[in-house]
Design a protein around this nucleic acid. Structure first.
Lengths: 111, 111
DNA sequence: AATACATATTGACAACTATCGATATGCTTG
DNA sequence: CAAGCATATCGATAGTTGTCAATATGTATT
């Protein structure tokens, strides 16, 4: 089975930034609007908007407009999907890509 | 509780690349040497060495010299640690950072 | 319609990343 | 020790990222 690693890259990239990790954590219990998220950081409004765009485009965060505000929330399904993907590529498995290694020996060593 | 998001950034950054995700997958069942990993990709030897450095410096991959070869393996503890961190920041929790949000209402909405 | 507020977009820029070819280092074997 | 193979490092380069100030857009209120 060929796994589609590239499919997960945008979400993992979205998580590979300290600011965005904190935002994900902040959204784990419910919705927050941009202005309240902004208060927790020492970054400009445009920078936060940039981070929220990366998070929403990655699918990890949902954003809905509510009048003048944007309400952001965590897309739990997507987050769980990423976690499941991680778990799958870091666990031994019967159809593992490494089984294709020509010189792999019986003790799981090659070379 | 203040979480140390920054602590996990190098490992997540290491995972945010298609090539390195595939390498992690290849190492999930056992050790492989650089030359065998290289065969699975269309990249130069120096580029692979660069990726292996990022993976080992992040702690996700262990590299040990074995004569002329390097034997790489997944650091399962580190991988599990990252997964546990993800799980923790994407799940509701009593000590959640979002609970500090001034305007958070009883229905977990703010604004 | 004018003003104020919330958020998004733009343009600029410095820092970082992925890549390569060339070269260096380290190990093994004749 | 010389040659050859495995891996690492270096220097260059094109592309990406995170940041800001300025500006634009969208919504609510007066």
């Amino acid at each position: 089975m060929e796994r589609s690693y590239a499919e997960y890259v945008p979400a993992i990239k979205a998580m590979s930034d300290e600011t965005r990790l904190k935002i994900i954590d902040m959204l784990s219990c419910g919705e927050m609007c941009a202005c309240d998220i902004l208060e927790e950081f020492s970054i400009s409004q445009s920078t936060l908007s940039y981070h929220m765009k990366i998070l929403t485009e990655s699918g990890l965060v949902n954003g809905v407009r509510d009048g003048a505000w944007m309400r952001y929330s965590l897309n739990k399904e997507k987050a769980d999907d990423v976690i499941a993907f991680f778990t799958s590529i870091t666990c031994e498995k019967d159809d593992c890509i490494c089984k294709k290694c020509k010189s792999m020996k019986s003790d799981n060593r090659c070379c």
